[in-house]
Design a protein around this nucleic acid. Structure first.
Lengths: 200, 200
DNA sequence: GTCTATAGCCGGATAGAC
DNA sequence: GTCTATCCGGCTATAGAC
């Protein structure tokens, strides 16, 4: 039944996250899911295919989370970004799967296109959010929305990385919202002072 | 001889980077290094110990690169940061080993302390650089140097991640220096406008 | 210290009963 | 479709000659 598929993908998420792709064993995934190895192979055909299925699922969910987070940021202001970072960093499996998706994309040509496309979708969503903010506030940042989006995303992932590795309290959770705010301010000021390549 | 050790660590860097810890085989490392598996075990005792030796080596080198990059930034200004990012992102093995070090630290308790300590050292170097810039320019950013440092590091790693995964040209190499500049400007402006929690 | 050869194990995948 | 039992290849690690 479809129930098995869900349980299997859940178990796969936990085990692949905790052990990494190569470190994970099909046996353990089956055990955690409460089914037998045979079921995995009847449904997914191979360990790689199971991983691929998990990745597409995970990336879809991730895009949804990004959308929700960005909406919160637009509607409730920068302060809301603190909870977005806390939520993302709070889920250890998600954090590890995210890293795993990047590593797999870097190492497996077949996965690279999928993951890279996901990154472009996320970037595009973030850029749209920047555009909405820009239109609402009427402040021009002087650089393409896409570039602001890339910077925001990079800062986000980099902070989650530090946040998770460090001891509790080592990285302040509201650092993200404060730095995004400062970034926006800085870009706005620079744009107002001098439109980049024009005056002598 | 010590020659073997160097060759082995070089081969280990390449293979662990390309395959990941679990995906790498001792056999392949030996083959790439041009020695036999026996030599590895006589020198390092186990695959894990070889990996640990590689990590400490890699983290030391990384700290050196950070120092060099920060010095360039301080002396030649923000524009130099473009080449720093290009250099870091230009080395595929380094990028992958960096990700591997984070993942290993997250998953292996024995490695966590080592890698976390490295991150603190990097952070502290960056904070010292921020302090030097602050003293030189006389501009106060209104937040602790450490926090600016964390943000700069996070932005850096996040951008390298996007830069490497995306197609060539998808992420502009000078985005880092521009965004760090904007961040500094934004912080300075906010600090000048209103010292955070003081006025009514 | 470095090699070759091999032990011993573990994990991915399949066969075949139900 | 799900189970159990099994195959088989590859891996880490060691033994022993040089």
């Amino acid at each position: 039944m479809a129930r098995t598929r869900t349980a299997l993908l859940g178990a796969a998420a936990d085990v692949f996250a905790e052990r990494g792709y190569d470190g994970a064993s099909v046996d353990e995934i089956a055990r955690v899911a409460g089914v037998s190895v045979g079921s995995i192979y009847s449904r997914f055909g191979s360990k790689q295919d199971l991983f691929r299925a998990l990745m597409t699922d995970y990336l879809d969910d991730d895009l949804e989370r990004v959308r929700a987070g960005l909406d919160a940021g637009v509607e409730q202001g920068l302060a809301a970004l603190e909870s977005v970072l806390l939520q993302a960093a709070g889920s250890r499996p998600s954090t590890l799967l995210d890293a795993e998706s990047w590593a797999a994309a870097m190492r497996t040509p077949a996965l690279r296109a999928t993951v890279a496309a996901h990154h472009r979708r996320v970037r595009s969503e973030a850029a749209a959010m920047v555009a909405r903010s820009r239109e609402r506030t009427g402040v021009d940042l002087g650089v393409p929305d896409e570039e602001v989006a890339v910077a925001m995303i990079a800062l986000f992932h980099g902070l989650v990385r530090e946040y998770r590795l460090g001891a509790p309290g080592e990285v302040a959770p509201d650092l993200y919202s404060r730095m995004v705010g400062a970034l926006a301010t800085g870009l706005a000021v620079s744009a107002a002072d001098g439109p980049p390549p024009s005056g002598p």
